[in-house]
Design a protein around this nucleic acid. Structure first.
Length: 435
RNA sequence: GCCGGGGUGGGGUAAUGGUAUCCUUGGGGACUGUGGAUCCCCUGACCCGGGUUCGAUUCCCGGUCCCGGCCCCA
C-alpha cells in the first residue's frame, strides 16, 4: 500500500462539496468588491520566495532542482507570485488593480491541528495606493469573505508596523542593531530585547516605549495614549471608514508584528477563537514588494485566508447539512423497463437536474434502499403500468408521497418540486456518507 | 527541530505470547411493484522493519503515519 505523504489530505465528494461551497461564497465576495481572479504557477524559482522572506525560509519550503539545474520551490504562499505577475506583465494597467487567487500552498512543517504540509489559501491583493481607503477596502473584503461563508465567531485585530518601526529607527542609529531589535520584537522576546539595548548602551526610555506600544490593544480610542504620528491618523481614518461600512467591532492591536521585514504599514489578523492552537484564519497588511522583484515601487495591501482553518472553524460552529449527490434516482420496476429508465434519466438531466439511474441491475426494493442511502430527494419509478399510460411515478423519498405524472413532463414536475428557496450558501451543500 | 498520546477489515470496536470479537458499510440471495422492512450468505484487518521467543497482532527497539501541543508561521 502506498501511503499518502505526511501532512497531506484526500478529500471525498461530501467534503469537497462543503469546501467548494465555502470557496464559492468567498469568491463571490471578491467579485462583489470588483476583484478579478488570477492563477499563477504552483512552483516558482526559489529566489522569488527568498527575496521576499529571506534565505531561512528555504528550510521550510519544498525546494528542488529541475532537470535544467534550476532551483525551484513549491509555492509556500501566493502573494509573491501575484506581485511577480504584476511586475512582469500588469504594471501598466490602470490602478487600483484588484486581484484575488485561490490555490494550494506547501510548507515543510510539522503537521498539527489546522496545519498541513499542503494547505489551501484564498487571498486578495489591492495594488496601487497606501491610503486608508485602500486598507479599508481590503479589510472590508476580508471580513465580508468570512461572513459570506456563514462564519460568525471571529475577531479582527488591526495594527500598524510603522509606529514601532519608526520608533526603533529613530532611537537607534546603528542600522544593523535596529534590524536585530525589530526581529526581537517580532519574536516577542522582550527579555532578550532589554538586554540587547542595555549592552549596546541605548539610552533613554526606548525599551519602555516599545513595550508600551506593543502592548497597546483595545478600541481605537486607546490611540490617545500613544504619541501622535502619521500612522495614528491613518488608523483613525481607517477605523472610521470601516465603521461606516458596518464593520465596527475591530480591535486595535499595535503588538501585531507580521513579518516586520516587508510589511510597511497597516497589518491585520483575524482569528477564530473556537480553533485550537492554530486559530488564526487570516492575515494581511500593506507592503511594497514590487521593488524587490525589479519593478517600480508600488504600494499594495493584501491578505490571505487559510481555507482549511475556515472549514474547521465552521465545523466547530455548526452542524453541516446533509450531503446528497443527486436530486432524483430513476428506478425501473423490472428488467424490461431498464431501457426506458435511461430515456427518463436523460430528460431529467437535460433539465439541469442531478439525476441517476440504476446501473447495477438491482431489484426495485434494493434500488429504493440505494436511493434512500444516497439521500436522493425523489425516486422516479418506471414501471409497466405507468409506461402503458406513458407516465412515471414520482416518489418523495422524505414523505413517501407518490403521484403519477406524464413521462414527458416528469422533468418539469421534478424541477418544480425541487425548487425550494435557498436560505444560506451552506444549506444547499450536500454532505453525507462518503467521507 | 522538540514533547505527549495513538495505529486491529472501508468506518467504529473486542480480546489475545498459539493469527482475531461484535457493529456498521459494501456485494449477493430470498424477496416477482413501494420490503427504505425482515432473514440468509459473501468479501474484507492486527502500520513497517529488526529483536526476544518453539511461536509476536500482543513484549522490546527503530522507523513511519495519525491526533494534540511547543518552536515557527513568509
Amino acid at each position: 500500500m502506498i501511503q499518502r505523504p505526511r501532512g497531506t489530505r484526500d478529500f471525498g465528494p461530501a467534503e469537497m462539496a462543503r469546501r467548494r461551497a465555502v470557496e464559492q461564497a468567498m469568491r463571490e465576495a471578491c467579485h462583489r468588491f470588483g476583484f478579478g481572479e488570477v492563477v499563477t504557477p504552483t512552483f516558482e524559482q526559489s529566489e522569488l520566495f527568498t527575496l521576499r522572506s529571506g534565505e531561512a525560509i528555504v528550510d521550510e519550503m519544498y525546494v528542488f532542482k529541475d532537470k535544467g539545474d534550476r532551483e525551484m520551490a513549491l509555492r509556500p504562499e501566493i502573494t509573491a507570485s501575484v506581485i511577480r505577475f504584476f511586475v512582469n506583465e500588469m504594471s501598466n494597467l490602470p490602478k487600483p488593480l484588484k486581484l484575488y487567487y485561490v490555490g494550494n500552498c506547501f510548507r515543510y512543517e510539522n503537521p498539527q491541528s489546522g496545519r498541513y504540509r499542503e494547505f489551501f489559501q484564498l487571498g486578495a491583493e489591492l495594488i496601487g495606493n497606501e491610503n486608508p481607503e485602500t486598507d479599508a477596502e481590503v479589510i472590508s473584503l476580508a471580513v465580508e469573505s468570512l461572513r459570506a461563508t456563514g462564519l460568525q465567531d471571529f475577531n479582527v485585530r488591526i495594527g500598524h508596523i510603522g509606529i514601532l518601526k519608526s520608533l526603533v529607527l529613530e532611537g537607534i542609529d546603528d542600522q544593523a542593531l535596529a534590524g536585530n531589535v525589530l526581529r526581537m520584537i517580532d519574536k516577542g522576546d522582550f527579555d532578550a530585547l532589554a538586554q540587547t539595548l542595555e549592552t549596546n548602551g541605548v539610552t533613554g526610555n526606548l525599551m519602555e516605549s516599545i513595550t508600551g506600544i506593543a502592548g497597546t490593544k483595545g478600541s481605537i480610542d486607546v490611540l490617545q495614549s500613544v504619541d501622535e504620528t502619521k500612522a495614528n491618523e491613518h488608523l483613525r481614518e481607517l477605523f472610521e471608514i470601516l465603521k461606516l461600512q458596518g464593520i465596527d467591532d475591530c480591535q486595535l492591536d499595535l503588538g501585531i508584528v507580521r513579518g516586520l521585514d516587508y510589511y510597511s504599514g497597516m497589518v491585520f489578523e483575524i482569528d477564530a477563537p473556537r480553533l485550537g492552537a492554530e486559530k488564526q484564519v487570516l492575515g494581511g497588511g500593506s507592503y511594497t514588494l514590487s521593488e524587490l522583484f525589479g519593478g517600480e515601487p508600488v504600494f499594495s495591501t493584501g491578505f490571505a485566508i487559510g481555507l482549511d482553518r475556515v472549514m474547521l472553524a465552521l465545523e466547530a460552529e455548526k452542524e453541516l447539512p446533509e450531503y446528497s449527490p443527486i436530486d432524483a434516482y430513476v428506478v425501473p420496476t423490472e428488467d424490461a423497463m431498464r431501457k426506458y429508465a435511461f430515456a427518463i434519466v436523460a430528460k431529467i438531466r437535460a433539465k439541469g437536474l442531478r439525476a441517476d439511474v440504476d446501473l447495477m441491475r438491482r431489484s426495485m426494493s434494493k434500488n429504493l434502499k440505494y436511493a434512500s442511502s444516497m439521500a436522493a430527494r425523489y425516486a422516479v419509478i418506471v414501471g409497466k403500468d405507468e409506461m402503458a399510460k406513458r407516465s412515471v411515478t414520482l416518489r418523495d423519498m422524505e414523505s413517501g408521497e407518490q403521484r403519477q405524472v406524464p413521462a414527458d413532463f416528469a422533468a418539469d414536475e421534478l424541477e418544480k418540486a425541487l425548487n425550494a428557496p435557498r436560505k444560506h450558501p451552506l444549506s444547499s451543500v450536500p454532505q453525507r456518507g462518503i467521507p
